[in-house]
């Protein structure tokens, strides 16, 4: 790889300062995400042209070209990652704004939450085992629909691989963001309450982010979905494993 070698040479020569490195990777990350949004608009807002996925792939390629370790990158863009915390708290505002809708559909929400959580956990385990995946992979798949920190805690408790669960949570979220809205619309489900809850429960953060950007009611139900699904899945997974043969 001569090109990669040259690129790394340029990179190593011009970015000796830690500050420059931070600036560089922040610009790459923001730039690729902005480019991803432009591309998606150009493609008629196609949901499969997901800018999160685009940015992840492009940044990964840039890391490879410059032979930068992931730890260095993560340290550089720490500030973006940090904002996830306040942004999660910020979901409280759409939640409080649409509290009437939430309390009115509380029974429906409870049913949907239980059904969705159990389906996610059981189908994840069953699909992996049916296709000859290892027991460890199946265990790591079980809590994948939950927001990453909870998913990792559950995996550690049941003997899965935390890093693998984190990868599944992100990939599952991207898949849900890419196919969720169009699939549900095709089935005639247009209510933002259903869209938001489904994204929060089946796709955790990334899918919830997509719905939250589209509609405040969707944001409220996505926020509830994330929070409540974490609780329910933490209770369900040990129960399901108890009945799992082997």
């Amino acid at each position: 790889m001569n090109i990669a070698h040259t690129l790394h040479g340029i990179y190593a020569r011009f970015l000796p300062e830690p500050n420059m490195e931070t600036l560089f990777w922040l610009c790459v990350t923001l730039g690729m995400f902005a480019l991803g949004i432009k591309l998606q608009l150009r493609l008629g807002r196609a949901p499969w042209a997901n800018p999160v996925l685009f940015a992840i792939v492009m940044v990964a390629l840039a890391l490879f070209a410059t032979q930068t370790p992931y730890d260095t990158y993560f340290h550089s863009v720490q500030i973006i990652h940090f904002l996830l915390g306040p942004a999660t708290v910020a979901l409280a505002i759409p939640l409080a704004d649409s509290i009437r809708l939430v309390t009115r559909s509380l029974p429906a929400m409870t049913l949907a939450l239980l059904a969705g959580s159990i389906t996610s956990v059981v189908s994840g385990i069953v699909f992996v085992l049916l296709l000859g995946g290892s027991h460890e992979v199946a265990l790591s798949m079980a809590p994948k629909a939950v927001t990453t920190p909870i998913a990792i805690a559950i995996t550690e408790q049941i003997g899965g691989i935390p890093a693998l669960t984190a990868a599944f949570a992100i990939l599952g979220g991207i898949i849900a963001a890419m196919i969720g809205e169009s699939t549900l619309r095709r089935l005639g489900i247009t209510d933002w309450r259903a869209h938001g809850l489904a994204a929060g429960i089946a796709g955790s953060g990334i899918a919830a982010a997509q719905v939250a950007q589209r509609d405040p009611v969707g944001a409220a139900f996505a926020a509830l979905g994330i929070g409540l699904n974490g609780l329910v899945t933490a209770l369900i997974v040990p129960l399901v494993l108890y009945f799992l043969p082997g």
Partner: peptide
């Protein structure tokens, strides 16, 4: 197994949640 499980399980989770919510509201 990972690709099929991720796609299948995510889609099923989405459909079941949205469908129950849709029917029960």
């Amino acid at each position: 197994p990972i690709a099929v499980a991720l796609f299948g399980s995510t889609l099923l989770g989405l459909l079941v949640t949205a469908f129950v919510m849709h029917r029960a509201t």
